[in-house]
Design a protein around this nucleic acid. Structure first.
Lengths: 113, 113
DNA sequence: TAGATACTGAACCACATGGTTCAGCATTCG
DNA sequence: CGAATGCTGAACCATGTGGTTCAGTATCTA
């Protein structure tokens, strides 16, 4: 379970760490697209784009279906919930950490008096 | 500006795409730590851990300070706000996309009648 | 001062990433 | 049928990643 989640986060954060792939996701949010559409939009060869799509598909962020000679890409089933949750948890941690720091500062101030 | 943000997201999502680095962040949320502390905790050489810390530092997620022979690592200034915002925006997109799909399904249903 | 401790840098390794080109294959169109 | 279109796979390339070892340097401690 932990393993599973770890691997998922590796994959999805990794997928999001590239501007082209984030762009593809935003694009697919507006409309489904073929590999050719995406390759044109992002000024890249078909083969190059196919690799990006593969990464996104592997991360569950995109699904594709080939009909005739066209492979159509759509947004996948994952809503990045775990990823949002991780970030949210981190921000709580961060806040707590800095609150603690504030407390230390406060304590020092009191000592000074 | 856009460029700047793009690069930041590349760096931070990239930093988060590794389980060890996410672990280091969680650890530093509990307490500051030296490179040695972290290397021990994650069963890795000092040199290996130093590289992870460097990636986190480069992404603004960790700051370090060397006092004497010890380099102490703490959480950095960035709270992953842009990253949260990106994910949130994506989820809105995702919802809109699937709502649209629902509408299409509804429209088809109406046509069938 | 000697030795232990903590980090640093260089070099290396296997493998992944982000791209390309080129040579196909399958499908569609005229 | 023949040509154009859309994708696919293999091979290649430069660079990055995640780790190691080894050989230092700097700092503490006894």
């Amino acid at each position: 379970m932990v393993q599973h989640s770890r691997i998922r986060l590796d994959g999805s954060f990794g997928a999001l760490s590239d501007a082209t792939r984030r762009g593809v996701l935003e694009q697919l949010g507006r409309a489904d697209a073929s590999i050719t559409d995406l390759a044109d939009k992002f000024h890249m060869t078909l083969t190059g784009m196919k690799k990006h799509v593969h990464v996104l598909e592997h991360a569950g962020l995109v699904t594709t279906e080939k009909v005739g000679r066209v492979r159509t890409c759509k947004l996948g089933p994952r809503r990045l919930e775990e990823e949002s949750a991780w970030l949210e948890r981190y921000r709580l941690l961060w806040d707590a950490r800095f609150d603690e720091l504030d407390n230390v500062v406060e304590a020092l101030k009191r000592k000074e008096k």
